[in-house]
Every structure is written in C-alpha cells, then in structure tokens.
Nucleic acid binder design. Structure first.
Length: 434
RNA sequence: GCCCCGGUAGUGUAGUGGCCUAUCAUGAAGCCCUGUCGAGGCUUCGACUCGGAUUCGAAUUCCGGCCGGGGCGCCA
C-alpha cells in the first residue's frame, strides 16, 4: 500500500510511501546519490544507491533542478546516518513541476540575501524554515488573541475599511474613489467600535487591517498593518482596560511558549513571560528617567524614539519587558480620549514592549457635550462626525479600549529587527508589489 | 517631510583614475567519486543601475534620474 506522508512523521513501519515536496539539494557521489526533499514540516533524505535502483530513475532524479516539486515513491529504510533516522529508497517518482534555473535566490545557499531581494521573491524566501516559522507563530498569536477575548466575553466584530472620514485627521488617509464620492481607507476601527458601546454589545474586538498614508521610513512602520482593537463598556477607569490587555497578552505569551515550541526552536528563540502586573510608569517619570540618562529633554517634550529605547533598557534591567506608560498630556492624545480635569493630563496609556510602543488606549470621553468640546479643541468640525456623535446622544455607557499592532507584537515577541519580517507581503512607502 | 549612506554575475561581495581581459564566495553547466548531509576534487559560465559631464583614459570623480538601506519626526 502506498501512503502519502509529510516528511516529519515517517517511520520504517510505513513500508512503501509516497512523499511529496521540493528538491532542496542533490548530492551525487557517483555510485550513490542523495536528494534532500523538503515540505512544510521538514526534510527527508532520498537515497539512491546506483546499483540497487533503476539506472533511468537514478539519472532523472539526480539531474533534477533544485526546488523542483516531485512525488517520490519508495521504501522507508532505517538509517543511522540521517537526522530522522530513516531514508527513502525510491522505486518511482513523478515530476510535478520543474523549477527554473538559476533560482532568483537560494533557499539554502551559504550567502546572505538582502531583505529587499527576499521581499521581491517572498514565495521563495518563505520556503526557508526560519522564515516560515515566523508566520506559523503569527498565526498562533492571532488565534490565542481570539481565545483570550472569547474567554472574557468579547464579541468578534468586523467594521468597514472603506470610510467617509478618518478618526485622527486627514493627512494620513488613503483616498478612494467611491462611485464618484470621496472616500478613504480606514485608519482605525476607533469610531465604529465606540459606536458599538451604545448598543449593548458591550465588549468587542477586531483583528483587521488599518491603513496609514504616513511617509514613514523606519523599521517599525508600514502603510498597511493589522490592528488588534478592543473596546469595553462599564469601566470605572482606564486601569480596567489595562488589566484586560495585560491578561490578553499574558495569555498569548504563556500559551505560545507551550504550543509554539516547535517553531520557536526553528527560530532559536525562547519566550520570556514578563512578571505581572506590568509596571506602571507615568509619562513624567519617564521623562525624568530619560533625562537622568543624559537625554536633553525638557518638561512637555516628547519622549521620542531614543527616550523610548532608554526606558526600554532601564526596564529590561529590572526584568520588565512589558510596562505601561500612563498620564500622557491630553494635547498629545486624540479627541476621543477623556481628559483628567484640571490637570492637562488624560486617562490614557501606552503599552511598551522592549522599548517600543505596541499599544495605546485609554478611557474614552462618553459624555456628549464634553466630546464635542474636545473635538473643537482639536480643530475638528463636529458636523463631519455626525453619525459617530449620534451614538453618544441617546445613552452611551462609560467605556475604554485599546489598539495593538499585531505585526509589531509578533516582531517584538521574536526580536525581529524589522516589522516587515512579521508581514507576508508588507506595504510601505516604496513597496506595492508583490 | 527632513538628515545621512549605498547600487559590481542569479545571490552576496572585493575593488577609491591606468596594475580590471574586474576579486572571492555562493550558484549554474560538465566531468570524477558508493554514505553524503555547508560533501569533496577538476574545468567552464556569468556583472560594473540609467543618462549626461570631466579626462588621453572612469566600476572608481562630478551632476541628474531611478532603485534601495539607516536614522529622525509620526504612530500600531
């Protein structure tokens, strides 16, 4: 009997098998030749002793181009000279797809390949186990987020990505021609998830794309990213939101450490689950810490990237990879954030992970008159937000929420040097293809 | 948007006015080899981002375009 197996779970007891995959490498020693066959799960050696197999079979297998896709039928034999402890002696094979020569980039070559070349040939790049593993992990992270949210009674929602107005102002919106009317790609589900707080669906979350036409050129910005947004009603203060996000992230890390073992091993990474509760730093404290380390900042200055990194280093020394920064000045935060009356501060927070912001959130302004005041203070015209504001006119509970960059989260969990490494086909200011 | 830096075979690099008919590795093609797994040995193939300028002479200097990298601002 012939069975189809992936290369990761083959044993001698299988007898005759058919294995399918990519020809990663061929080593012809003259009287014997070897193929390393690769699939999603690993590699398997096909061994061809010249005198023991059909000469035509030996010849055609040995002459294949690297990365061709084949199906090989043969007998599984034990071998103390292969990593798996088994090898397959072929009796037949089918060439499913012949790979062109030369390859645009090697899968196992001993040369570095630049990220640009890799992204231009992402299909090939993803054949590398260590690249593929990132996306196995990413898939788990997203699954674990959903589990954590479901456990806490959150409803999984989808909000429109083609919208009539932005949440944060016009400069970073992508324009779309919507049957002759001006429209935009959504920067954030912010306004929609807040509107839902007035419906009784009092805990919602969404994992979906967000678009920002920012001319950013950094290792942590792309123009299309995946945002994990949450919003919850009936909160007393922004700490209720922070407790929820902490619980969700802890759930992700704890379970990923367990379930992601195989992929983490491929990447040579270990997950350190930070102690709970995550420390709270006020914005003012952070400024002071940065100044103490020699950064020339004044009161009211922005912490900046360098400041963020310094705080990250200080917290890392204490073993805190994740920490909240609270009490941001209200003018640094959007209109929908609630002010701490008379202080110039706001009920908002950022969550930083290893010196980089991965999330921001806070308590929202749910009181209609105050909300309109904040809009005006920010130079926005309330008339442009009529359908949003309507939801606040007829009974809106206190609420708050957050947004987390999923790509950044994955990049930080795995210590990837660039957020693009955590995105299959990243979109940035210069990249629209593939 | 601002400030730096770069572009040499399929991939990754060396080369800072003539020694370049351009280095090395990887790759590809061919040959030898019965236990390789970064196989080994021998032979061969393959490149100066584009357009101008300077010069007797440009991969090398200058200007512009295109493409890319790093950093900042902004944020997720």
């Amino acid at each position: 009997m012939t069975s189809i197996k992936d290369s990761g779970n083959i044993s001698k007891e299988d007898g005759i098998v058919t294995v399918k995959g990519w020809v990663q490498d061929i080593r012809n020693l003259g009287g014997i030749s070897f193929i390393t066959l690769r699939d999603r799960h690993g590699t398997l050696q096909i061994t061809m002793p010249k005198k023991k197999i059909d000469p035509d079979l030996f010849e055609s297998l040995t002459r294949l181009s690297r990365e061709s896709v084949i199906a090989v039928t043969g007998e599984v034999k034990e071998s103390n000279q292969t990593a798996l402890g088994v090898e397959v002696i072929p009796t037949a094979f089918e060439l499913c797809s012949e790979a062109g020569v030369p390859l645009p980039m090697g899968v196992v070559d001993k040369v570095n390949v630049e990220m640009d070349t890799r992204l231009n040939n992402r299909f090939m790049d993803l054949r590398k186990p260590e690249v593929k593993a990132v996306f196995e992990i990413r898939s788990m992270v997203i699954g674990l987020i959903s589990e954590a949210m479901a456990k806490n009674g959150f409803v999984n929602i989808n909000t429109p990505k083609i919208v009539a107005s932005g949440a944060e102002g016009g400069a970073t919106l992508f324009s779309v021609d919507y049957f002759g009317k001006p429209a935009y790609l959504a920067q954030s589900p912010q306004l929609y998830k807040q509107m839902l707080m007035s419906t009784g669906l009092d805990r919602v979350f969404e994992i979906g794309p967000a678009f920002r036409a920012e001319h950013s050129n950094t290792n942590r910005h792309v123009t299309e990213f995946i945002s994990f947004d949450g919003e919850m009603a009936w909160i007393n203060k922004e700490e209720d939101v922070m407790a929820m996000i902490e619980e969700a992230i802890d759930y992700v890390l704890v379970n990923l450490k367990e379930r992601g073992k195989k992929h983490l091993e491929v990447l040579g990474k270990e997950i350190t689950v930070p102690k709970r509760p995550y420390p709270l730093l006020t914005y003012t404290e952070c400024l002071k810490m940065a100044v103490d380390r020699g950064l020339p900042l004044k009161d009211g200055d922005d912490l900046g990237t360098e400041g963020e990194k310094i705080i990250g280093d200080i917290m890392a020394e204490k073993g805190n990879d994740l920490y909240f920064i609270i009490e941001y000045p209200e003018e640094a935060k959007p209109f929908y954030i609630m002010e701490k009356e008379g202080t110039g501060l706001s009920f908002s927070f950022d969550l930083d992970y290893k010196g980089q912001e991965i999330s921001s959130g806070g308590q929202r302004e749910h009181r209609y008159p105050e909300l309109v005041k904040r809009m005006e203070k920010k130079g926005l015209d309330p008339n442009d937000f009529e359908s949003y504001l309507n939801a606040f006119r007829y009974g809106m509970p206190p609420h708050g929420g957050w947004g987390i960059g999923v790509d950044r989260l994955v990049a930080k969990i795995l210590d990837l040097p660039n957020v693009r490494e955590a995105i299959l086909f990243p979109r940035d200011i210069g990249r629209l293809s593939p």
